[in-house]
Design a protein around this nucleic acid. Structure first.
Lengths: 332, 332
DNA sequence: TCACTACCTGCAATCGGTTGCGTGAAACAT
DNA sequence: ATGTTTCACGCAACCGATTGCAGGTAGTGA
């Protein structure tokens, strides 16, 4: 069995409370005694039992991070950053994957509630009502979804969309398609309203589509039919599917149509063409979420909203608009 | 504050021990009483505090999963599978990322030790000695690294390498290069010894290389110099870097040189050419690791070794060997 | 010498459950 | 009517820590 505080107390000839204080309030114990205790602890390989400590202090020094899908390359950088940041605050992060299932999500939240001081919900799939209810038991910070009255970290896709459209407009594109994601998606709405604010270009809204390569592939027909020469896709997967679909139809990217993705999750230098995309500040979001959470654990307070800026990464899938109306030359 | 067992006891007019038994040993309590207790619990929104329970039972019903790098696409499927599988056993998984740093790894292990019943170490970077020492405090299962005397889950890269080389040999390649990873890597060794067993082909061992795209890029010169027409790379990243490096030198893939990767971690249909690769049974490994861990938590016993079969996924980066000695035609 | 203050340290209750032991009552056998 | 078994439940110690309170000791000033 691992050494307990009592073993250390016995070994160093003091009461358990003194041992406890040696670790949690060192200034209250005589340096000599402290050293004796520390020596005994070291000797026995004693490490305080955080679970037991949590029982009295009410602080587990753990935070939970619930994510819809770890395999989605969007999340790992966020998780990593949150974890590293939490560590500097003497907190540990427990990651759980809901597999996109609201029921699993709720169950995980309930299971984690007692073992953590707070929860980071990344792109939660639960209803607002369910989240409100669950929140009574444990502090939340919501990431990547807008929720009033709750600490929230958002990434400004609207601004990213604006950057992308300005980029396309600057390349001479006058007709730009927005290939939207699932209907009702917050991201889609943000993109739409941001895009609508740009003038000098025709905007076409296409969709809804599945947020996958298949969705993009399927949208290729609509895009060609729309006559748009520039496209902003819902995310990188859609963008990649779309490019594949366009190429299959003999449409060159970026020769005939320029495509911009969102997320910057596509690794690999072999992609042809490499994707121009709106990069999300996922690492910053992870850190910010941890900060907000720890803050709201202490203050039990203000529902802060943090909106993080996005940026455009220009690569190879965008280029100058083709000369107007060349009557699409499809290959044989 | 959340309801405790005492609140429920009071509300239903029984002793706390009866409430406790209602949840942990229902058959010991009268159905009538049980229903009364359950009703009161439901009413108060009571949920047993697992941390407190762990204090007396010594079982947290949590397992920790420590991984070198969550961003490495190799791991998420493993994590996901482990998590889902653990859930069916009423266990929860805490994931922690060491950022490839042995010091962080040791610290995380120590921190998690008291909060979990066992640990899954995926590709640990710690020395054998350190692992042996830490193991005194908590059961381990090691994944993706060979360690005697400890439950271990391995994926048979040797067998995968054999498949790859047979595939290349079958396509007529007579000189095959192994682009190895970091020196001393277990994977590299496995690949080498497996490859050596194949006859009818010349084998060239290249490396060591960094296990990254840069590493592959840098190895391109060696590969062309070696005169090999088939290559088995340390992993997909190396393979991709290598392909890029070869293409920059005017060497066509798979026209002039065929390349096989390992891991099957490259998503995206836009890769040109799509990578032929050795797929790892990561999900199965995750499940198996959980099984072994829970087993060794109970039995405190046998050091089982599970070796999982790999498979070859043939895509576009491999093709028939070019006719012998065409005196490499580089583009201008 | 005495009172007062600081500074340490011990005592014991407490956090939220679990569990071995003991007991009272009901059910059954004799 | 008495003895025995079974069942359901209460009692209280315990898991490993924390912490308010009290007491003891030494040092200071008068």
């Amino acid at each position: 069995m691992a050494a307990t505080i009592r073993d250390v107390a016995q070994a160093s000839g003091v009461h358990v409370s003194t041992v406890s204080r040696t670790f949690s309030a060192p200034h209250l114990v005589n340096p000599e005694t402290r050293n004796r205790v520390l020596a005994a602890a070291e000797d026995l390989g004693y490490r305080p039992n955080r679970a037991a400590r949590a029982l009295t202090t009410g602080r587990t020094h753990n935070i939970g991070l619930i994510v819809a899908d770890i395999s989605n390359p969007f999340f790992p950088p966020l998780i990593k950053a949150a974890q590293a940041h939490a560590r500097t605050r003497d907190y540990h992060v427990f990651v759980a994957d809901t597999d996109e299932d609201p029921l699993v999500e709720e169950e995980l939240i309930k299971a984690l509630t007692k073992q953590v001081d707070g929860l980071l919900l990344c792109s939660p799939r639960l209803s607002n009502r369910a989240i409100e209810r669950l929140r009574a038991d444990v502090p939340f910070v919501v990431v990547n979804r807008e929720m009033k009255g709750m600490p929230t970290v958002l990434m400004d896709v609207g601004q990213g969309a604006r950057l992308a459209i300005e980029h396309l407009a600057g390349l001479g594109h006058r007709r730009i398609a927005l290939v939207c994601g699932p209907s009702g998606s917050w991201t889609s709405k943000q993109m739409q309203s941001a895009a609508a604010a740009t003038d000098g270009v025709d905007l076409v809204f296409l969709g809804p589509n599945a947020p996958t390569e298949q969705g993009g592939l399927a949208a290729a027909a609509e895009v060609t039919a729309s006559g748009a020469t520039g496209v902003l896709a819902y995310n990188d997967l859609v963008a990649m599917g779309l490019i594949e679909g366009l190429q299959e139809r003999g449409v060159r990217v970026p020769g005939d149509v320029s495509v911009v993705g969102v997320d910057d999750t596509v690794p690999g230098r072999l992609n042809r063409p490499k994707l121009t995309t709106v990069a999300m500040p996922t690492a910053a979001a992870g850190r910010m979420a941890v900060d907000l959470l720890l803050q709201s654990v202490d203050d039990d307070g203000a529902a802060t909203l943090a909106t993080l800026a996005t940026s455009l990464v220009v690569r190879e899938s965008t280029g100058p608009a083709p000369p107007p109306r060349p009557a699409g030359e499809a290959r044989p």
